[in-house]
Simulated scan of single mutants.
Amino acid sequence: MQYIATFYSHFGAIRFKNEAHPSVTDIQLMPVPRDLSSSCGTGIRFQAPDDYTYSGDESGEVEQIVRHTENGYEQIYSST
């Protein structure tokens, strides 16, 4: 399944890419769709199992993670 992560900074996006869990594959930096966020503008698109969960990040850089569905986006993690 395809997911998109948004971040508060470009550094957070790079860090997520470099430290991704082994179940996260096909990681690509991308511009963030404006309907998801306007924070730093850099996001990551990635593939992960359908039951992928994200428990949070100690750096506080991840803004949100959404799953791409037929009907749009489903949020699976939010920092707020």
Rank of each mutant, 00 (worst) to 15 (best):
I65V: 12
A48W: 01
S37M: 04
V32I: 15
G43Y: 00
G56E: 07
I27A: 08
A48N: 01
A48D: 01
S59C: 10
I76Y: 04
M30K: 11
C40I: 07
Q75A: 12
S39G: 01
R34L: 14
R45Q: 14
G72R: 06
Q47P: 02
E61P: 01
V32D: 00
S38Y: 08
R67H: 03
G72K: 05
E63Y: 04
E61W: 00
Y73N: 01
Q64V: 06
S59W: 02
Q28V: 15
Y52E: 11
P49G: 14
M30S: 11
V32H: 00
R67N: 04
S38D: 13
H68Q: 13
Q64N: 11
C40D: 08
S38G: 15
V62D: 04
G56H: 09
Q64D: 10
S38H: 12
T69R: 05
L36W: 11
Q47C: 09
D26C: 12
L36Q: 09
D51K: 06
S39F: 09
H68R: 11
Y54M: 06
Q75V: 14
M30I: 15
Q28T: 14
E61R: 01
Q47G: 06
D35S: 08
I44Q: 05
D50M: 10
E58R: 09
Q47K: 11
P33I: 10
F46M: 12
R34E: 14
I27D: 11
G56F: 05
E58I: 06
Q75I: 10
